[in-house]
């Protein structure tokens, strides 16, 4: 098992390095001269040349890449072309916001999917189970931002129970923080919850068919108790895998949700940086997002190895 994990770690590191080259390469061809953007509409050619030099974008691409990636290792993502401030601290700050959002979204998804999925599985031959399945199909078909727009309209604009947007850090005011987080987390979590429900349902159905569960039920345990005692670990293997994939989806789904709710996370930072052609910032954000996905995949792989009894025995 250790060998397995080490192998995974190696793959993670190599992938991360290759990804960084890909991100750099992709954005090196972005049209729009950062110096021009920074200087505005009437920049003189001399000033442009000087600014290009200041940004270091007049040097060979390879030099630029190594300098950039070298800096990234020490947490230095360079200075923004537009604000001329260090990107690193901004990234950490925004990533923090997005992680709250993604975490809360995931929590909502789990709170929906676990009970709904297990219920639908246990009753999968009955009408009530089919209703849950049908609802989850419908939930998957609704785009997250549509859910967001509807939630804002109902709970913020009409009922005025919750803020329509904005962000309060938890330390400043925990109550404001929570009330501001609720609608975005629901928007993110409802759709993901619907997706997850289907996976929970099918893996629980699989487990319910296993012999040891049939035995347990024959002994008089209700299906829920039998599952709780014997089946959850086995049912959790595929669910954890999907959960990992969904984390990546949530991270990107947050881009749209942050726009709707005006939340200063990584997503709004990305969209701003793109429309300002703040190349270095875009580069940093994309790298962080891709690394986050790779890291999640790595962790899922490791968990999979640890959780899966068959793989454990094999090693």
């Amino acid at each position: 098992m250790t060998v397995q994990i080490l192998r995974r770690a190696l793959i993670f590191v190599v992938s991360a390095l290759v990804a960084s080259v890909a991100v750099f390469g992709l954005l090196a061809v972005l049209p729009g001269d950062p110096a021009q953007v920074a200087l505005g509409v009437s920049a003189t050619p001399e000033l442009l040349a000087k600014t290009r030099q200041e940004f270091g974008i007049d040097r060979p691409l390879a030099t630029q890449y190594f300098e950039w990636i070298g800096g990234v290792f020490s947490g230095d993502f360079g200075n923004s072309y537009v604000t001329r401030e260090p990107i690193g601290p901004q990234l950490v700050d925004r990533l923090g916001v997005t992680m709250w959002l993604v975490g809360a979204g995931m929590l909502v998804a789990l709170l929906i999917a676990l009970p709904a999925g297990v219920f639908a599985a246990v009753r999968h031959r009955r009408a009530s189970g089919s209703v849950i399945s049908g609802l989850s199909q419908l939930g998957v078909a609704v785009p997250g931002f549509v859910a967001a727009i509807i939630l804002v309209q109902v709970f913020a604009v009409q009922l005025r129970w919750l803020p329509a947007g904005g962000w309060t850090p938890p330390i400043v005011d925990p109550l404001d923080f929570l009330s501001g987080l609720l609608l975005p987390a629901l928007s993110l979590g409802l759709v993901q919850g619907a997706v997850l429900t289907r996976y929970v349902r099918s893996s629980v159905i699989d487990v319910l068919r296993e012999d040891y569960l049939r035995t347990a039920r024959a002994k008089g345990l209700t299906p829920y108790r039998a599952l709780l005692r014997h089946g959850l670990r086995n049912a959790s293997v595929p669910v954890v895998t999907v959960l990992g994939l969904q984390l990546a989806t949530l991270l990107i789904g947050a881009v749209v949700i942050e726009r709707v709710f005006v939340i200063p996370g990584l997503g709004s930072m990305l969209l701003d940086a793109v429309s300002n052609r703040d190349l270095l910032t875009v580069q940093g954000i994309v790298l962080v997002l891709v690394l986050a996905v790779l890291l999640v995949n790595f962790v899922v792989d490791v968990l999979y190895t640890v959780l899966n009894p068959r793989l454990r025995q094999a090693s």
């Binding site: 700050d93 709250w100 850090p169």
Partner: peptide, 23 residues
Amino acid sequence: KRISLFLAALLVAGCSAGSTASA
């Protein structure tokens, strides 16, 4: 040390980003 600093910064999550609702 850098990594732990990074983590600490993340945990206090967006502390300097946008406090806006209390006006």
